[in-house]
């Protein structure tokens, strides 16, 4: 089994643009940006250079949901940053191609922000009809026309 070593570098929010600019200069490729939010925000920036993998991690509280944009160094980050903005309600400062919350067409604002209350039907992601809302709940009354 192959398990990659994936160094994780904790970083301060304010130091992000400079660090990312340095990585861009060294020729790292931006692999992805991942946001997650339980009690506090946790944003991970992943980079790759010739197969080597590096993560930068920024943590900050829910009270202050803002991040500096890195589109200055990596224009391609606009997709990830708009995604975070839409799904997690982050504010991205200096985002070059800003869709202002319209990157995804969502039925609910910032659907990924709250953890779902277990079993509550209203907590379905994006409240889309395809997402089963009552997981594991007993099925609706059987069809009156049995075969």
């Amino acid at each position: 089994m192959m398990i990659e070593t994936q160094p994780l570098e904790p970083l301060d929010r304010a130091a992000l643009p400079a660090r990312v600019a340095a990585l861009a200069k060294e020729g790292w490729r931006l692999v992805q940006i991942c946001c997650s939010c339980r009690d506090a925000y946790e944003v991970t920036y992943s980079f790759d250079r010739e197969g080597r993998f590096l993560n930068l991690r920024i943590g900050f509280s829910k009270e202050d949901p803002a991040l500096p944009s890195i589109t200055e160094s990596y224009f391609g980050a606009f997709a990830y940053e708009n995604e975070m903005q839409d799904l997690f309600g982050l504010r991205l400062d200096g985002l070059k191609l800003n869709f202002h919350g319209n990157f995804y067409r969502l039925a609910k604002k910032n659907p990924f922000l709250d953890p779902p209350a277990a079993g509550s039907p209203g907590a379905s992601p994006a409240a889309s009809p395809s997402a089963p809302s009552a997981e594991g709940a007993p099925r609706a009354a059987p069809d009156p026309r049995p075969t």
Partner: peptide, 19 residues
Amino acid sequence: AIPSIGFIHRGLEKMAEKK
């Protein structure tokens, strides 16, 4: 060219929290 996607966002990532 200015893209716009998001017509079919399904939220499958979120589903992992309940499955």
